[in-house]
């Protein structure tokens, strides 16, 4: 990788990863007047700079959990804090990447990334510099002026990651970010994300349905169960980063996790 570029990138990052603390978090929706419990009694602590993966069957509320942490959903019961500050609404301290890239189709890649800096006090030139840095970070050089419809799924998702990271959030949330990509692209994107995380050292929480992906990237994997969504099981991935995809230890852990997940399926 290009060492001198990385140096410059690191020089301009002056943020610190955040610590997330969730206590007794519950959330319900009203469905035809009937309360539907989506999440019940979630307790979760994430250390600064940690990478946590969340897996679980569909409908276990893992996406709702991320949306709550991002501040996109309100009225929950319980307590959520990032570095001791209660989470009430969206904030530039918490970034999120969705399964669909959610780039604005009428803006170019560079403009899409720059939109995240609307609230920033930086000057025009500083913003342009920062955008260029992040385009390099996700290897999209040469596509600054491309429109989203001209990008492949993987490239669009890289742009989305750059947009989420440019505000230098203390916490980055990833909601099945590679779910819509083909298998080969997904593998290369996982490697990219690992590199970005090692460089960037944000706290990251990723929701996925891919157990291998969860293990490859996560310091810790959390298994969630459905109806109501709750944390069922937790596993530490005691391997240093960057990891070897086919490490025997990962295989062992995968077997354990799959058994857990199959168990939660059998409950239905």
């Amino acid at each position: 990788m290009n060492a001198s570029l990385d140096q410059r990138w690191l020089a301009s990052t002056s943020h610190s990863p955040g610590a997330l603390q969730i206590r007794e978090l519950s959330k319900h929706y009203l469905l035809d007047g009937q309360p539907m419990e989506v999440l019940k009694g979630i307790d979760l602590r994430v250390k600064p700079g940690e990478f946590v993966s969340i897996v679980g069957a569909s409908g276990c509320g893992k996406s709702s959990l991320l949306r709550l942490i991002a501040g996109l959903e309100s009225d929950y019961s319980g307590d959520m804090q990032l570095d001791g500050k209660a989470i009430t609404t969206t904030s530039l301290e918490r970034g999120i990447v969705f399964q669909d890239h959610r780039l604005f189709p009428w803006k170019t890649v560079a403009q899409n990334i720059a939109i995240a800096l609307k609230r920033s006090p930086l000057t025009r030139q500083e913003k342009a510099l920062r955008v260029a840095e992040h385009i390099r970070l996700v290897n999209l050089q040469g596509f600054e002026n491309a429109y989203p419809h001209q990008l492949s799924g993987g490239m669009a998702q890289r742009a989305a990651i750059a947009r989420a990271l440019i505000t230098q959030p203390k916490l980055l949330l990833l909601d099945e970010p590679f779910g819509a990509l083909d298998a080969l692209t997904r593998i290369s994107m996982q490697r990219e994300l690992q590199r970005i995380w090692v460089q960037h050292r944000s706290t990251m929480i990723m929701v996925t349905h891919d157990v291998e992906e969860a293990l490859y990237l996560g310091d810790r994997v959390i298994v969630m169960d459905a109806r109501p969504g709750r944390i069922k099981y937790e596993i530490d991935v005691d391997l240093p980063h960057p990891r070897e995809r086919h490490a025997p230890r990962l295989q062992e852990l995968k077997e354990i996790l799959l058994t857990e997940l199959a168990g939660s399926d059998a409950d239905k």
């Binding site: 999120i96 669909d100 959610r102 604005f104 009428w106 803006k107 939109i115 609307k118 609230r119």
Partner: peptide, 26 residues
């Protein structure tokens, strides 16, 4: 989802109109 992105990056009201609403509805 467009409005959610605007909320996430805390776009000011003028920018919400200029960068999101009008281009999307143009």
């Amino acid at each position: 989802s467009h409005f959610e992105v605007a909320r996430l990056y805390r776009l000011p009201r003028y920018s919400l109109l200029l960068d999101v609403v009008f281009p999307a509805a143009a």
